[in-house]
């Protein structure tokens, strides 16, 4: 039963990795921008929530209602004011600029909030759990997080394939020059894509902050999990990203069960294995 519980934990955490990774893969898909600051932006979202909660005392799950639009707004402005200027035939400028952004966010948070680690307290929900019978328990919070992750990925999929905005995202991704002939202002479309990405970042950032401690320096290690989930699942496939996140979560849980020191290493090894055997990702189209 211990193993069943372990695998269930891994599965549920994997949903969170997948949600976080979906924002990364969305941006790469629409504008071929690899956002090195993606992990730090989740940490920024956690601190935005922390500030709101400190000022008002609201539950972190309620603070999501405010953090999501704030981060989406930051995303739109960031894209229009800065990142759009880095896009072009060369993929190096956006890498360098988002790397710089990562350093700025980490140090900005350090200067504002100090290096102390924090956690957002969600009250009684944190300890509530569901008895699934036979000694298998699922925490209410991980279940909620997993449910939200699946909903986000399903919602993104629906948006991409069934709405005018999704059509515009795909058209701009295919050929931004011709997309402009269709009346699409690609700078605005990119801004909307980044806003959407950071809205997802905000959600996953707050959920991660409820799940465990955060401090200004943990962004880059989260970024690696995001990349790994995307690569394991395969670029350009949102459901693949969900699967990639779940696989990463499961493998980490198995590693941790063998020896707590193996948790992160096991994830990296699974990632390397996929890269070696099927570099296009397990679920690439």
């Amino acid at each position: 039963m211990e193993w069943v519980n372990t695998l269930l934990q891994g599965l549920l955490v994997g949903g969170l990795y997948a949600m976080f990774a979906a924002g990364l893969s969305l941006i790469f898909g629409v504008m071929k921008l690899v956002n090195i600051a993606h992990g730090d932006l989740t940490v920024l979202a956690a601190y935005v929530a922390y500030s709101i909660i400190s000022a008002t005392g609201m539950n972190p799950l309620v603070s999501i209602i405010f953090v999501v639009p704030i981060m989406a707004g930051i995303g739109y402005v960031l894209q229009r004011a800065l990142l759009n200027r880095t896009l072009g035939a060369d993929i190096l400028p956006p890498l360098l600029v988002t790397f710089g952004l990562s350093v700025i966010i980490q140090n900005g948070l350090l200067a504002t909030y100090s290096a102390d680690s924090h956690r957002l307290m969600a009250g009684s929900l944190e300890t509530a759990s569901l008895n699934l019978g036979g000694g298998v328990y699922a925490g209410a919070l991980p279940l909620l997080q997993f449910g939200l992750a699946v909903m986000v990925i399903w919602g993104l999929h629906w948006l991409f394939y069934h709405t005018a905005l999704g059509r515009a995202f795909r058209a701009v991704s295919d050929d931004q020059e011709v997309a402009r002939l269709m009346g699409l202002n690609n700078k605005h479309i990119y801004g909307l894509a980044m806003a959407l990405s950071l809205a997802i970042v905000a959600l996953s950032g707050v959920l991660l902050a409820i799940r465990g401690n955060f401090d200004p320096s943990i962004g880059p290690s989260r970024l690696i999990f995001g990349f790994e989930a995307v690569i394991i699942g395969g670029l350009s496939s949102l459901w693949g990203t969900l699967a990639g996140g779940i696989i990463l979560g499961l493998v980490q849980a198995i590693g941790a069960q063998i020896d707590p020191g193996y948790q992160v290493l096991a994830g990296h090894l699974a990632f390397l294995l996929v890269l070696a055997i099927r570099p296009q990702g397990l679920f690439a189209k």
């Binding site: 005018a164 059509r167 515009a168 795909r170 058209a171 997309a179 269709m182 009346g183 699409l184």
Partner: peptide
């Protein structure tokens, strides 16, 4: 979808 996007102005 190609046609629809042409008509989106």
């Amino acid at each position: 979808e190609n046609l629809l996007i042409g008509g989106q102005v």
